[in-house]
Amino acid sequence: MTGYARVPAAEIVSVALDDFTALYHRASGITHLVTSPVPELLDVLEEAPLGLGEIAARLAAVFEVEDEDALAVRLDELVAAGLVVRT
């Protein structure tokens, strides 16, 4: 089963600007300007991999998750950005 893990929290400096949040990723030196649901998503992820169902369930406490496919697309974007590791 595919699992998703976030990079260690200490690697990310986060500054909320308005609707956007600026993330500085220490391991890469790259700045990401992100909007909801990315900060929420990073909040519910852990350094140990979680399955898609578990992530959706945790996120449901914050806002409505319409479908898991859309969630997977968002997660894969974070994988490409290097902030999330897929296992």
Partner: peptide, 16 residues
Amino acid sequence: AQGRIAALWEAEMARR
């Protein structure tokens, strides 16, 4: 030091 961070990150992305 900053160049080193970028270089090691590039290696890590290739590894993944």
